[in-house]
Amino acid sequence: MLKAIWDNIKGLYSLLVGMSITGRYLLSPVETIHFPRQVVDDEIMASFRGPIQLTLGKKDPTQTRCISCQMCAKACPGHCLTVTKGDAKAPIQWLYDFSYCCLCGACVETCPTGALEFSHKVYLVTVSRQELILDLLSDLKTRGTQLGNQIVPPVPPAAKEASPSVAPASPSAPATLAAPTSAPPAPETKTDPPKAAEIKPDAAKPAQTKEPAPASGSTDPVAASPAVNSATNNPATNNPATNIANDVKTGAPAQSEPKAQTVAPQELAPATKPETKANPVANKKIHDHSSRPAKKRGHK
């Protein structure tokens, strides 16, 4: 009896403790960040697991470490990854359908070379599903180029407007970067793909030989000029939303172009084969990709 009374009095004390805690929280400052007016600090963003991206290369930041082993594509529960192998190990196309991604990280964990990582992009906004199909190679190119711009001091006389590290070292570099120089939504005009096709074979060579991108002058005079222009078109703005928007825009038309002139690579998943031979019209390509997961499930 007495013990029960004593227990209840102790219970009353615990109520007071609870009220003191909420009272303290009532008076402590608010944690909410009002998004359009305020933005979260970058340090906090570092723990955010956003859409995946390719890690920067060790020697050349624009080079991916991916070896096109397809482990990530198989591990992905949403079938949202499409890695297309080129003649060498390095992929010539790396498509990521973020609209199917559940951010589980299976691809990041399975990657044997550590070529994948989570990005910290919070402000990804698109107006259509198609824009969510991200071209990670061109994204890597952009980021690597920006990094190079920050690190390497200018300027070799050969390429004036260019920052020197924009060496077209890997096959899709000229293609992806050349795209925005033309009017953005103009993949159907048929004038672009031939240009890219010209550039392509030249640029493919250094990639095959695994030659790291030199920090100065380009080895490829043909590819240099478009790359230069587009590099200046992608300023390293602080607003992440516009950055991604740029990525998406450059990525979408670029997807078609490496494919346009590639001969069908040897080791491809059966579902990807018909797509690599398809025509260079970008929109059609994207439709193919958005319907892909269904196809793959059909195979299983």
């Binding site: 929280y25 608010v30 944690e31 009002h34």
Partner: peptide
């Protein structure tokens, strides 16, 4: 407002 502040969010804003 009180609910918001106790949970360290601003409430109606």
């Amino acid at each position: 407002k009180v609910a918001g502040f106790i949970q360290r969010r601003p409430g109606p804003y």
